[in-house]
Design a binder for these strands. Structure first.
Lengths: 233, 233
DNA sequence: TTTTCTATTGGGGGTTTCCCGTATTTAGGC
DNA sequence: GCCTAAATACGGGAAACCCCCAATAGAAAA
């Protein structure tokens, strides 16, 4: 998975990290982080209030590949309290590292899903006891969810994000053919249906795979369905 | 903020409508409604606190097809204040009807998206002035979003939602292999990964296709993703 | 206990897909 | 007007997939 550091872009740095800082202040959090994912393209873009040392370590060690907060959030609808991750094997790795860099022990990650398969993750952390965290958690979780929706809504509609997390589009013919494939038709069938050569059908399928960054047609069908380009047949 | 454990209550119908009533009471709302959609399967399941007359009218007139709250929410991440829909052409139709049945004029619809393309909509309404509504809105929107996530999470993991459609089950091996196919692996690759023969992989794929009533593997992958047996790779 | 289901492996052979080319048409940029 | 990129279209040959068959073993259900 490739990481796009949005903070290097000129205008956005101040806007979003400042917003994250405001969340911290308002809800007594030590740190906040936002990550926007495009599972199809396999890209992640984020803003954090963590120090640069941790950011560098996180990237250089490829911790994003095993980060349990990200894996958990990909399947979950509800907010994920980090205490629920403690039994995960990868948890030890990432969180011990984090602790060494002086990062807080208690945290929560809130997933937000958009209509194009995009996922936004807002995480907030605080160094405190479990009891203290529980009290704080129930008090601020509602507002944090609003904030998560708000920041994700802003990020995905901004220019820098759409260019960073490119959302593929298929041509009319490509989508049409992929739709027939999802309906269980063979290339020969589709050629007959559309009155073109099955060779041509294959070409459109190939370009569809390329646009979706898919290695095989089944993978392309899965991704196209996941981001709403076609419907399961 | 307290969360009612829905699983302790016996019957689903009363369970969810009772939960909606509690939301109304807590936040001074007149009515609340939840709709769970599976756009890929084209199914909608809902619970409302509206009267039966309006429910019957809504269904018999097919208002669900033109309901602007549903259309808006399909493309939106953020909550949709019904005042933003007033310029929609279909708005007039649905909301004039609603008004005739004595339904409130102010409302909000909160969309929640799950990992399988499923969408949950929580709506809350109140009959009051615009100023009153604005004040109430900003005060309760955070908690309403939490409630929306909570109820949708419960509904999609409940039996009645999944069993609404015929739901084939795959064996562990079948799902495992289909997941690898969705990730773009060939049969030979999967055989190497799982340390089994590629012939065995093919057998499992065949039975997967049969169980899913799919003619081809791409179709099987699409259906498996649509009903949540695997995730897009 | 018998039966059924799942998981496993293999052969033979037809079908389908996929990668390599080429070619025409169309839309958009300089 | 020219050029480039994308969309559309077609074919040969190699690789992968899929369907028929048979067979073994363990686990679960009847």
């Amino acid at each position: 998975m490739e990481i796009v550091d949005l903070s290097t872009l000129p205008d956005s740095e101040t806007r979003y990290t400042e917003f994250l800082r405001q969340i911290c202040e308002k809800h007594d959090m030590d740190h906040a982080a936002y990550a926007g994912m495009n599972p199809t393209a396999g890209t992640v873009a984020g803003y954090v209030t963590y120090g640069d040392e941790w950011k560098d370590h996180y990237q250089s060690q490829g911790l994003i590949m095993i980060d349990p907060t990200i894996h958990m959030s990909r399947r979950s609808i509800a907010p994920v309290d980090w205490s629920r991750l403690e039994r995960s094997p990868d948890f030890q790795r990432v969180f011990r590292d984090a602790h060494d860099f002086g990062l807080p022990s208690q945290g929560v990650t809130i997933p937000v899903r958009g209509p194009y398969g995009d996922i936004g993750l807002l995480s907030a952390t605080r160094d405190c006891s479990k009891e203290e965290w529980r009290k704080l958690y129930t008090h601020v979780i509602g507002d944090l969810q609003s904030m998560a929706v708000h920041i994700h809504d802003n990020v995905v509609t901004s220019d820098e994000f759409t260019s960073a997390l490119y959302h593929p589009t298929l041509s009319t013919r490509e989508a049409e053919i992929l739709q027939w494939v999802a309906a269980g038709k063979s290339q020969q069938d589709i050629g007959d249906i559309l009155s073109i050569s099955h060779r041509t059908v294959e070409v459109h399928l190939r370009s569809s795979r390329e646009k979706l960054s898919a290695l095989t047609t089944p993978q392309a069908v899965g991704r196209a369905i996941a981001i709403g380009l076609i419907t399961p047949g």
